[in-house]
Design a protein around this nucleic acid. Structure first.
Length: 592
RNA sequence: GGGCCCGUAGCUCAGCGGACAGAGCAGCCGCCUUCUAAGCGGUAGGUCGGGGGUUCAAAUCCCUCCGGGCCCGCCA
């Protein structure tokens, strides 16, 4: 990578000047000479020289990498102009995944309660988790994606109870998770709700024994259809009832009880309970104690989260897996008592859960440290994203105040279809194009902003196909593809014919790898999404460039040599956009 | 009471120690006899919430105040 090499050269030259310092190379502003530059002000004090003089000296001492045309001192900066041909060669290089590195990263995302259809709140979780999994894999990590099925939770129990209690029969047409979800909402509107608790309890116990698995599975399968439609990928399903039956909780508690920070107070507020003192690991707590096992003997959900985290990181074993029969994900495996033993032993985990779970997630990390594995605590990352509002209002699954993902997908597709039909009546497969564009609009809208910012899901914006959107990037891709399709085969490019237009586009192409690495490092896909918008914009500007009233950058009708150069650039651009979109789980249509 | 996060153009957001603060939407003016106008160019719009501080340099770091969101149960 160009920037890396420059930084390395600068580092060497500075060492020779008596400073072991690494400076960051940035892009030069448009109106300044050169393509990249470094500010040198920080060295002035150390070297007792004005930055301008340092720029001069650095230029003299610098052993320029072969791709640099010249180093230009500009005030306190030293800028670099790349050789055009080297720049183009770099831009034309195919963007391949980074070499594999050691160490498994386990990503848990989705983990939707198997009791009703997915709503737009889940959308952000899935889009973030799935994109991040793809980005990390491209960045060279070994990635395992896990989807947790809370089949012993209250939500699942209530839905199954409601289905039975109201004697509802499925008409065979409605999507099953929607049907089940209606029962759940009805239960919560029932004035008799409080009186129905014993019945719900009974279902809860049956679930813990794993007895109603098929009924839960029926809902899960319907949900998986939606996840498949969102182009989300999973490697493993882990059912909570399997964790219960494998006794992971007990094993986790055994480990925890060896810690001096885990105790059973004899008296006071926590008499009879098993508590954990998290104060050494979480500063500023008013009350340092957290209950793991209630005095009545029941474990808290913290304890279950901790046990599961221990399993993910190989501190516990006991789960078994087998292939999961389903029509959507051929290679998917599921936990099952009769399966083969497997423990991932992840060095790093990423739990994609909204911010409201920050506190419990901190306890999970504290527990790792407390059993003597601060290294694992360090590797346990909580990707905390802010909640999604619906048209400015908080959603509620219980009250049915939410828009389902299926509905959003359908509406997006309907709108996209109208646009395709209008803009491209000759399109050979409008349905498929509409599906891709709809998916692009929705997924992109979910990842283009920083996770820690609350987003408001508004139909008009999320399903917009103009401006800072997925379809904007997809359209840029389709345009490029259209040119390549018409070009047929072409010969070798003549790099020496490049104009400033090719230069600008090539420069934009160089930032791809850095964007991917930063997204992987910071664990946030928005960096890549923002880059793709920039790249698409650079391409659209190139495409539309005019000198006077004439097109400045025609590709197909360009003179020999330049034509091939432009085609090669367009091809690199098209592939880069496609790769980038794929890392966000978004398909790149060839025709729109 | 304790803790976490957010506050940048009318709206939605990038930028998070360096070169005059950038996009999209909305507004206004242009560009289809050009490889898809889902596009492009231009114009207008900003006390980067307020106030202190650190620094050669602050939207970016620290403190403080103000606004908004969230978390802090022997509930899940």
């Amino acid at each position: 990578m160009v920037r890396r090499a420059l930084e390395e050269a600068i580092h060497e030259a500075l060492k020779a000047m008596g400073l072991d310092l690494r400076l960051k190379v940035a892009k030069a502003p448009k109106d300044k000479p050169g393509d990249y530059g470094v500010p040198l002000f920080a060295l002035a004090k150390e070297l007792k020289k004005p930055p301008q003089a340092i720029a001069q000296e650095l230029r003299e001492r610098l052993e320029l990498p072969p791709f640099v045309e010249e180093a230009i001192p500009v005030g306190g900066y030293l800028n670099f102009r790349l050789k055009t041909e080297a720049l183009l060669e770099e831009a034309l290089r195919e963007k391949k995944p980074f070499p594999k590195r050691e160490g498994l990263v386990l990503i848990e995302h989705t983990s939707v309660n198997p009791n009703k259809e997915l709503h737009v709140g889940h959308l952000r979780n899935i889009a973030l988790g799935d994109s991040l999994a793809r980005i990390l894999a491209f960045a060279g990590r070994e990635v395992l994606v896990l989807n947790y099925i809370d089949d012993t939770g209250r939500q699942a129990a209530e839905t199954l109870f409601a289905l039975r209690h109201y004697g509802l029969t499925w008409d065979g047409k409605e999507k099953y998770d929607h049907f089940a979800g209606r029962a759940y909402v009805r239960l919560h509107q029932d004035p008799e709700y409080e009186k129905l608790q014993p019945g719900i309890e009974a279902v809860l116990h049956a679930l813990e024994r794993g007895e109603l698995r098929e009924e839960v599975n029926r809902i899960l399968l319907a949900q998986l259809a939606t996840m498949r439609a969102l182009n989300a990928h999973y490697d493993l399903l882990v059912w909570e009832s399997d964790i219960v039956r494998a006794g992971l909780l007990g094993k986790a508690l055994e480990l925890l009880e060896q810690s001096p920070h885990v105790l059973r107070p004899r008296e006071g507020k926590y008499a009879g309970a098993l508590v954990m003192d998290a104060s050494p690991f979480i500063p500023g707590l008013e009350d340092p104690y957290f209950v793991l096992v209630r005095s009545g003997g029941a474990a808290t959900y913290y304890a279950k989260d901790i046990a599961f985290q221990f399993w993910k990181m190989g501190l516990l074993e006991g789960l078994r897996f087998k292939p999961y029969e389903n029509p959507y994900y051929p290679g998917l495996r599921t936990s099952a008592p009769e399966g083969e033993p497997y423990t991932p032993k992840a060095r790093e985990t990423i739990n994609v859960i909204d911010v409201r779970q920050s506190h419990p997630q901190a306890l999970v990390r504290a527990a790792l440290a407390l059993v003597g594995r601060p290294d694992l605590a360090e590797g346990a990352f909580h990707l905390a994203y802010e909640t999604v509002l619906l048209e400015g209002k908080q959603m509620s699954g219980r009250k049915g105040l939410a828009v389902s993902v299926d509905e959003v997908l359908e509406e997006a597709k309907r709108r996209a279809l109208a646009v395709v039909a209008e803009k491209n009546p000759e399109h050979p497969d409008k349905e498929e194009a509409a599906r891709m564009v709809a998916l692009g609009a929705i997924r992109f809208a979910m990842v283009k902003t920083e996770p820690r910012k609350q987003i408001d899901f508004r139909y008009e914006e999320a399903l917009s196909f103009e401006g800072d959107t997925g379809p904007y990037v997809q359209y840029a891709h389709a345009r490029a593809h259209s040119i390549l399709r018409k070009a047929g085969a072409w010969g070798s490019p003549d790099l020496s014919q490049a104009t400033p237009y090719e230069r600008a586009l090539a420069l934009a192409l160089l930032d791809f790898e850095e964007a991917v690495l930063e997204a992987a490092e910071e664990k946030t896909p928005h960096v890549l999404a923002q880059y793709l918008l920039d790249l698409a914009a650079a391409w659209n500007a190139y495409y539309n460039a005019k000198e006077g009233s004439r097109p400045a950058t025609p590709v197909l009708t360009a003179p020999p040599g330049l034509r091939e150069l432009r085609l090669a650039l367009v091809q690199s651009l098209q592939r880069t956009l496609k790769t980038g979109l794929s890392l966000l789980g978004i398909p790149a249509p060839e025709v729109m």
